[in-house]
Design a binder for these strands. Structure first.
Lengths: 212, 212
DNA sequence: GAACCGATTGCTCAAAAGGGTAATGTTGAG
DNA sequence: CTCAACATTACCCTTTTGAGCAATCGGTTC
C-alpha cells in the first residue's frame, strides 16, 4: 500500500486448441497496458509445462481439447499450485462440466461469445480474487441445483446405453445381472426427469453428462 | 489483363457470433497486403445486409449462429448472388451439415482449429475459384458417402423421438397412425445402421442430422 | 448403533419396441 | 409410360422396457 499506485501487470496464459481464438485473445489483451499474455498453448500437457515455467497470474483454459481435457489439466495444475487462478473458456453446452470445473477449483467462466471488454473484466476480477460466473451460466446452474446427481455407476450405464446397448448387453459389459441394470435405468430416468431411455440420453447430452 | 500486375485485393467478410474469433481472423488477415476484412458481423441478418453493401469476394461463415443459422444465410445469399464465394467456418461435428452446405453451394470449409496460414490459403484458393475441403472433412464425407439419406419425414420422426416421445405420441403429433411411425422408425434404424432407437438418436447427433 | 445411500438381485406384469411381410396411393425421374 | 422412392396403413409375433415392490450388503455420516 506504500508505493503501489503503479498497477500490477497481470500475466496471463491462454490454453485453447483454436489458434484463431488465441489470436483474438492476444489482440484483446495487447491493447491493455496492465495485462500481458505470456504463454499460448494448445493442449493440457503444454499448459502444465508452461505454468511451471511462468506461473501466470491468470490462466484461461478451454474445457474441450484433444488429448488431456481441460478439466483434467485444471485439476493437475491446482494439485501442484492450489493458488492458481484458472478461468474456464467455453462455448457452453450443459452444466455438468461447468459444475465439475467449479468444484475442482475454477475461479470463473468465460463464454467464447463474450466481448473483449468482458474478457478483460473477467481477468481483472479473477486476479483480484473474485469468482466470476456469467449470469447465463449461473442461471443454468440454478436450474438444476436441486437435482439428484447421477452416481458414477449410473453414468457408466448411461454411457453404455448411448452406445446402443440393450439392458442385457450392458449387464454383460458391467458384469452384473440385467435386474441391476434395470434398477439403475429406473434411477437414471427418474433423476433426469426423462420419459424413457432415449430421452434420458438426450437430457444427459444437454446437461453435459454425456458427449456426442 | 493489361496493367494488372498489381495484385487484386481480396475483400473478405466474416460472419461468426464469437467476437474473439472475429478478432483472430482480423489479426490473421491484417498481416496480408492482398486481403482486406471489410465486414465483421455476428448474425445472418447482418450478413445479408453487409453482403448487399460490400459484395465481398470471399465470405467466411459460421454454421451455428443464433437466429438465422449459417445454412439458411448461405442459401439466401446464394439465391440473390449465385457467384458469392462462401467458406464455411466450423468446429466440426458430423457431416450432415457439411454435406448440406456443400450441396447448397458453399465453396469450401475451414476448421476453426486451423492456423492463420491455412486460413489465408483457403481464402486465396476459393477466391481463385477452387473448392477447398480439408482432408479431415473429406474423409468423414467419404465415410458416409454410400449411406442412404433420411427422408424429410424420417428426420421429423427422429426429431420427435429425440424429444422423448413414444411412437404413439409421435403418431399423434404427426397426425398419422402408430403403424406409420413404426414403419418410419424401422427405416431410420436401418438407414443409420443403429441397434435401436436410442442408438439412432446418438448416430444422428454424431452425423449432424440432429442437434443436442 | 442407527440412519442412509449406493449397488446388487429377484419377481411380476403391462406397455412399448422392433422384426417380418404385404399392400396402397402419390410423385418425380428417366 | 415405367420404375423407384416415399408415405401410409395393417397384422403377427417376439423381445425389450419400464413401473412397482422387496430384500441384502457394504460403506459413511451423525
Amino acid at each position: 500500500m506504500t508505493d503501489s499506485d503503479i498497477p500490477d501487470v497481470i500475466t496471463v496464459m491462454a490454453v485453447d486448441d483454436h489458434p484463431l481464438l488465441l489470436d483474438g485473445i492476444k489482440a484483446a489483451l495487447s491493447e491493455q497496458p496492465d495485462m500481458k499474455l505470456i504463454a499460448e498453448v494448445m493442449n493440457g500437457r503444454d499448459a502444465i509445462e508452461q505454468f511451471r515455467l511462468h506461473r501466470p497470474d491468470v490462466t484461461l483454459m478451454d474445457l474441450r481439447m484433444p488429448g488431456m481435457g481441460g478439466l483434467q489439466t485444471l485439476r493437475e495444475i491446482l494439485t501442484e499450485w492450489p493458488d492458481a487462478r484458472i478461468v474456464i473458456l467455453t462455448t457452453y453446452r450443459g452444466d455438468a462440466q461447468v459444475m465439475s470445473a467449479l468444484k475442482s477449483g475454477a475461479r470463473g467462466f468465460m463464454l467464447k461469445g463474450m466481448m473483449r471488454k468482458e474478457l478483460r473484466e473477467t481477468i481483472r476480477s479473477v486476479y483480484a480474487g473474485r469468482r466470476v460466473v456469467p449470469s447465463e451460466i449461473a442461471f443454468e446452474l440454478a436450474q438444476h441445483a436441486g437435482d439428484d446427481v447421477l452416481s458414477p455407476r449410473e453414468v457408466q450405464v448411461l454411457r453404455e446405453l448411448a452406445r446402443g446397448n440393450a439392458n442385457r448387453e450392458i449387464a454383460e459389459t458391467l458384469k452384473v445381472t440385467e435386474s441391476t441394470v434395470k434398477a439403475h435405468m429406473k434411477s437414471i430416468i427418474a433423476k433426469l426427469g426423462a420419459k424413457d431411455r432415449t430421452h434420458a440420453v438426450m437430457l444427459a447430452l444437454k446437461r453435459g453428462i454425456l458427449e456426442v
